[in-house]
């Protein structure tokens, strides 16, 4: 079998006495959506930071595209093609929606140090940006100020920015958070298609979305992965039902 796009091997991370990641291993294969679920405080965000960069594990390795990237920072991992969306939107709120996606396209172009020509007149960047907006359904909002977008639209914009980078893998931190039912369903359909372009590591609380989308699910509880498997395996897993789904039997 082909080597996974992204793999995490025996990662440990402690903050003082608190063990946030304990021997965590998981991988992301070509064409799949791998969902990471777990109760609040299970260490999902800490794990995401170690995968996307920004937090160094105490031990263990992160491999991306066949390369050990444990020592690389966020910028280097992004340049290699790791596309990330944030749980709490990290967007330039004073800028227009278009400017935000242009930023992604600019980053992907690898040439941000150009000083004189207006960026909005750069045809190649603009095309990448507008395509991404169209794909998430934000074309009509392109010239709006980002802070004027609704919460749901900001979530869509987060995804659009990641799209402009044409990443080799996505790491999405709760993209459905705060979306209404219809927004959530639309994004679910979108991610369903997206997995064929690049696999997605999806951290999500919305169980309907997770069960609808995931090829595999890993369950994180108190810093440890207690189970990894298909949707059916996870639904049936007794420990998962007790620890996470909160069922009595």
């Amino acid at each position: 079998m082909a080597e996974p796009i992204l793999s995490v091997t025996k990662i440990n991370k402690s903050f003082g006495a608190l063990k946030a990641s304990i021997d965590v291993s998981l991988d992301l294969r070509v064409g799949e959506i791998h969902a990471l679920i777990g109760p609040n405080g299970a260490g999902k965000s800490t794990l995401i930071k170690q995968i996307a960069g920004g937090l160094q594990p105490d031990s263990g390795t992160v491999r991306f595209l066949g390369r050990d990237v444990t020592a690389l920072d966020t910028v280097q991992r992004a340049q290699m093609g790791l596309g990330r969306t944030f749980q709490i939107s990290a967007l330039a709120m004073e800028d227009s929606v278009l400017q935000n996606v242009m930023l992604g396209a600019l980053g992907a172009s690898g040439r941000p140090f150009r000083f004189l020509r207006p960026v909005l007149k750069d045809k190649a960047l603009r095309e990448t940006a507008e395509t991404a907006l169209a794909r998430v359904g934000l074309s009509e909002q392109a010239l709006m100020r980002t802070s004027d977008l609704s919460h749901g639209q900001r979530r869509q914009l987060e995804v659009a920015v990641a799209l402009t980078m044409r990443p080799r893998a996505f790491v999405m931190d709760e993209p459905m958070a705060g979306l209404g039912t219809s927004g959530s369903q639309r994004l679910t359909r979108f991610l369903d298609e997206l997995r064929h372009e690049a696999p997605i590591l999806l951290v999500e609380h919305d169980m309907d979305a997770v069960f609808a989308l995931a090829d595999r699910i890993s369950v994180l509880v108190y810093g440890s992965v207690i189970a990894t498997g298909t949707v059916d395996e996870i639904r049936a897993h007794p420990e998962v039902r007790r620890a996470y789904l909160g069922e009595e039997e």
Binding site: A52, G53, G54, D73, T74, V75, A78, Q79, R84, F86, A90, L91, A92, M93, E94, D95, Q99, N100, M102, L103, G104, L106, G107, A108, G110, R111, P112, F113, R114, F115, L116, R117, P118, V119, L120, D122, L125, V161, T164, M165
Partner: peptide, 23 residues
């Protein structure tokens, strides 16, 4: 108005985002 200006302006507002797009 340049590409540099766009990136710098974004970095003032959200440094994390700029890093995430590889700048």
């Amino acid at each position: 108005a340049s590409p540099f200006g766009l990136a710098l302006n974004a970095a003032r507002q959200t440094s994390e985002r700029v890093e995430t797009v590889g700048i």
